[in-house]
Design a protein around this nucleic acid. Structure first.
Lengths: 144, 144
DNA sequence: ATCTGTGCAAACATTTTGCATAGGT
DNA sequence: ACCTATGCAAAATGTTTGCACAGAT
């Protein structure tokens, strides 16, 4: 992950093990984990890392434009290394969050601009439903 | 507002002055206020009403299907007496939240169902931008 | 040597809860 | 009289902050 270290430094951020681990975990997993989940998972490889560092790092990476914060409506935020605006869908049964195709909303912004004269800048779009895995089977909530 | 009292009782809820005031305020204003804003506003007419009552009432009304909770991404929730699913847009300058036409997303749910096999149940859709009033003029954040 | 990042603990803000009292039916 | 709703205070939760130390350049 040399590329990440470079991108961090471009943003004036030091490439510390904690930051690399957090970003890498976010990038690899498609789990959209919360700060708490990140903390619990990375504790194994980084036993001294504190929860405050996780929050501070997530904040730094967000400000540097390297990740986005999701507000699915739970008690806590989730984080996504994919900074392209795209809708998400959460399964109300297993609570997992999945990405949706950005094309779903591609003409909505311009339509809003035309009908409301709003200058549209960004979006947060969440759908809720039952995922294929949970349809039929009554699976439990998953930790992601 | 006799109709409201009846609707409350249909849901097994007592039609107390506090509940009526909160619901009426929500219904009349298109402000999508937070619990705190509701509290501060209704304090004038209901000086003894506590913040806890506002929260409890909002929870009861939500469970009764008489309002919906919005999660615009601020520290606190906002509330909407219009329970029909519809997108919202927030002005990043004055922080006001406006309703958008539900038709904007009318075919998105079925498209999601087709492409992901998700059974879509609900949605939370927020756009962000600069409202017509704030374009050009640098207005301050409004309390709503 | 400087300067940023980390880790710990305390602080913070919103929301929830417990419990005694008030008020409606 | 009963039973739910209210109001107050305390608790709970996720997140932020202050500060001293560690680590990198």
């Amino acid at each position: 992950m040399q590329a990440l270290a470079i991108r961090l430094k471009e943003k004036g951020l030091k490439a510390t093990p904690q930051r690399i681990a957090i970003y890498k975990y976010l990038e690899d997993s498609k789990d959209h984990p919360s700060a708490e989940t990140i903390y619990r998972t990375l504790r194994e490889s980084h036993p001294t890392m504190s929860l405050a560092t996780v929050y501070k790092t997530l904040d730094s990476l967000k400000k540097a434009g390297l990740l986005q914060q999701l507000n699915v409506g739970e008690d806590s935020f989730r984080y996504d290394a994919d900074t392209h605006p795209h809708p998400h869908i959460q399964c109300v049964q297993c609570t997992r969050v999945f990405d949706l195709d950005p094309a779903l909303l591609q003409n909505v912004s311009s339509e809003i601009r035309q009908t409301t004269s709003f200058q549209v800048l960004s979006q947060q779009v969440y759908f809720y439903g039952v995922c294929p895995d949970c349809q039929g089977s009554q699976r439990e909530a998953v930790n992601d």
